[in-house]
Amino acid sequence: MRLGVLDIGSNSAHLRIADLAPGEPPLPVRSVKSAVRLAESTDRHGVIGRPAVGRLIGAVREASAAASAAGVGELLPLATSALRDAANRDDVAAEVRAATGVELGFLSGEQEARLTFLAVRRWYGWSAGPLLLADIGGGSMELAYGAGDEPEIALSLPLGAGRLTRHHLPSRPPVRKRTRKALRAHVRSVLDEATTGLAERPAPVRAVATSKTFTQLARLCGAPKAKAGPYAPRTLARADLHGRIPELAKLPDEERAKLRGVKRSRAHQILAGAIVAEAVMDVLSLDRLDVCPWALREGIFLHRLEALAAGRPAGPPFGTAADRAGAPYPCPVPVRPSRPDAERKAVARLHAVGTG
């Protein structure tokens, strides 16, 4: 079957389309990415602003059209931290549904950690032994540990690179050493409290990082380029990262974006990401992390494929406490054309409210 996963994050809405077949890895077909900038458009009350909602509607409309053109049978639209935690998330989801016909679902932080762990386990296999996973997003950071398909520990912490940049760093560099030390102390305090259970587990045989933040930090510290392909080994060493943090702190965004591996869209938050990554390795006594090319979206593909193979209906992964409490999960929906009339009315309503 051909499945589309639309991942709506803090900065972008990213559609990945893949063909799924039993016994085979997800075969990538197409990728469509649109900037939505939800996190930076969220006010201090947690309300996402109207311009960002308009961008989101446009991104979902584009993704739905791309999925239809690619022959996608089912589309899984999901939102992570930025929209999940927004005070007006239900209103935003209603606007998107009225404009595009697409019903957004929400993943809990624990579900994100478990699905990403599944992807990492499948990538490295059983020879990897007990795995430790770290993933830094825009709004949250996920940690997971386990020796099987499912992690024994799955955590989601409010240590996303975008969140920390907004709340703890100045709008313009340079970032003074005392400011960096204060942020590092905050990150360490959260990690120290949250990871006590990890200290009681056997040391992981392999410690793994996923996400764009870790990928770009690894490239900054000398890992192979993307064109080397997914099978090229990539690692991030704590000592190398430690040496790059003062440089990142001095540079404005436009200069950071000229550094090896740093994308312009993430230049503003790469310093916070580096501080979190270093703190994670320090607190968990890790000298280096292997960077895995598979992450959350691949975990969703694999979870859906396993459900199909077992004849199970698609639904929340793993049956976590959050699932039992009724946390919404995006069920696959047939791809269908959007409704232009409803869309025009919704967008007009947005403009009217935004200018009223």
Rank of each mutant, 00 (worst) to 15 (best):
A119Y: 12
G4T: 14
L155A: 07
R206S: 06
G49T: 10
A321G: 08
L6D: 10
A199G: 09
P340R: 15
P330V: 01
E62W: 01
V175G: 03
L183P: 03
A161M: 09
T210Y: 09
I48G: 00
L3N: 00
R163Q: 14
E95N: 05
H242G: 13
A94I: 05
R339V: 10
R176V: 11
E95P: 00
P28T: 15
A13H: 03
V276H: 00
G129V: 12
L132C: 05
R50F: 13
H167F: 12
L15D: 05
A79L: 09
D19L: 10
A65V: 15
L104A: 08
G54S: 13
T235Y: 11
L271D: 07
A98V: 03
L296Y: 07
G23I: 15
L241T: 13
A39S: 11
G319H: 10
G261F: 11
G49S: 15
A199F: 11
S265D: 13
A295W: 11
V280L: 06
P26N: 14
A295G: 04
R178A: 13
P316V: 06
G148Q: 14
I57W: 04
A39L: 15
D85S: 15
A226Q: 07
G243F: 08
I275M: 02
P51N: 07
P151A: 07
K263S: 15
F318K: 02
L131I: 14
I270Q: 04
L107V: 14
V72H: 00
H268V: 13
R206N: 04
I48S: 04
P173C: 03
G23A: 15
R178K: 10
A277N: 04
A228H: 09
E278A: 15
A98I: 06
T235W: 01
D253A: 15
A348M: 10
L305C: 09
G299H: 08
R234K: 14
D323C: 13
L159D: 02
P151I: 04
P77E: 00
L259C: 10
R30P: 02
P170F: 14
G129H: 10
A307I: 01
G160C: 05
A274Q: 01
F117W: 02
P252E: 05
V353K: 11
A237V: 09
R37E: 06
L27K: 10
G319D: 11
L15E: 06
G73S: 09
D290Y: 05
P22T: 04
R61F: 10
R44V: 09
H351M: 08
R312I: 02
T42I: 12
A346I: 10
L143Y: 13
Y231E: 14
K345W: 06
R344L: 13
F117T: 02
P26I: 10
I8M: 03
A86V: 13
P173M: 03
E74C: 07
C292D: 07
P28F: 15
R84P: 12
R188E: 07
A63Q: 02
D192H: 13
I275N: 00
S285G: 01
R339C: 05
A267H: 01
D287C: 06
F106H: 09
L271R: 02
W126F: 08
L271V: 01
P204I: 06
G197F: 12
R166V: 14
F301R: 07
A134I: 08
E112K: 11
P316E: 03
A66K: 05
A209E: 02
V262A: 12
P158A: 13
L241A: 11
N11D: 09
R201F: 06
G109Y: 05
P252I: 10
E306V: 02
V291M: 01
G146V: 04
